[in-house]
Design a binder for these strands. Structure first.
Lengths: 211, 211
DNA sequence: GCCGAACCGTAACGTACGGTACGGTGATGG
DNA sequence: CCATCACCGTACCGTACGTTACGGTTCGGC
């Protein structure tokens, strides 16, 4: 979220320790972690948890927010953009995306947010939505538009191009992992997938002879 | 699942009424439905629920299985396959897929399965996985291979082609809906998306001049 | 050395809900 | 008419867990 606070401003170091413990427990045992288990793992009292975070939901929300603050947004270099460097940028992007989505933390937090989105508040769903798919779009957008400005790719709407790229990269991998499929791709597969996705994207949207 | 029982063999009419009630409640209030609420809605006793389904998890599993039995698999006509009919088949397929995934029932059951996949058993995750992404692959496979046999499209592995098609069709729509995004596409948007996805797929895998 | 603030550890409370027991009722069959 | 069966409705039990309360400890400030 633009204009947001950094994690140092939002949470004290001690609080970050607590949130780390909560995230670890979340990854280990899903969202049936108890306040007692978090307090024990973080070596703090339940009273402190409630004082700091209000209630269980507040703790989970803070954990998700805190994790979201950790993703950094690398900026694109808009100068000297040629076909190879655009391809490299996009492949790097695809690799990062796949690696993140296949990681334990992403799977855990997406599951948590989806579980909560079923209920009433769904504040968690909104947070993950903003820091997941929507943040990805925000990060990819300048890359795509730089490519368009350099006449390397062509598209009507950035939104459309972004979504096609997302689909080509992620395909059904995320939903299968969320549903509990055991297989996790290795680095080699991720690299291959990223290369293939960019290749296909450039075939669809590239201007040059296969870009 | 091939060789499985039909829903008439698996569940009595009365039991199907109960499962319908359970599914309705699931759609209405997520998986925090209680056994009591199901019994009340279905006008049956809790004792009967436990006698029929064992425990809460058994009831949820039966509900998902029962819903899964309802999806029928339309067969492809392998004769007289030309470019327009292949395109039409794939567009129909894409429309069906998008319409299903954007529906309340699909969203609810996928959320339920994802929630349970976080825990231990994850039997639900496996069921939805088999009847969701994997069943889609099974259904699409003959279409793709018929297209390949007719020299209309070209690919090395059916798996690869299937996954690319899935990505082009679904993109980030499903994860966004699961995370609670309110927007549901209308029929017009779904038609447009299906047409675009097939167009793109044929550009990537077609043999002819834009098939 | 004293005070209050912040925090730990633990015990206790309240409640929601999964699961069970049991009495009552209508249908079927002899 | 009675026995059996399948089921409804409801009261009840056990427990897990969120939440609160409270005594004890550390630590910074005066």
């Amino acid at each position: 979220m633009p204009g947001g606070l950094s994690k140092e401003e939002l949470f004290t170091p001690r609080q970050q320790q607590v949130l780390t413990a909560a995230l670890d427990l979340l990854v280990e045992q899903g969202d049936r972690l108890t306040m007692t288990s978090v307090a024990r793992r973080a070596q703090c009292s339940k009273e402190t948890l409630y004082k700091w975070f209000g209630d269980r939901d507040g703790l989970l929300t803070a954990t998700v927010q805190w994790q979201a603050l950790k993703v950094r947004v690398p900026q694109v270099d808009r100068r000297k953009l040629d076909a190879p460097s655009l391809r490299a940028s996009m492949e790097q992007f695809a690799r990062d995306l796949l690696t993140t989505l296949c990681g334990d933390v992403s799977i855990t937090l997406n599951r948590l947010a989806i579980t909560h989105a079923a209920g009433e508040g769904s504040g968690l769903g909104a947070i993950v939505l903003e820091n997941g798919p929507l943040a990805i779009r925000l990060r990819l957008k300048p890359v795509l538009e730089a490519g368009r400005d350099a006449r390397l790719i062509r598209f009507e709407q950035t939104e459309e191009a972004y979504r096609s790229f997302y689909g080509l990269v992620v395909r059904d991998a995320q939903i299968r992992l969320l549903l509990g499929e055991a297989h996790r791709p290795e680095a080699r597969e991720i690299n291959a997938d990223a290369a293939r996705a960019v290749e296909q994207f450039l075939k669809l949207y590239g201007t040059g002879p296969l870009a």
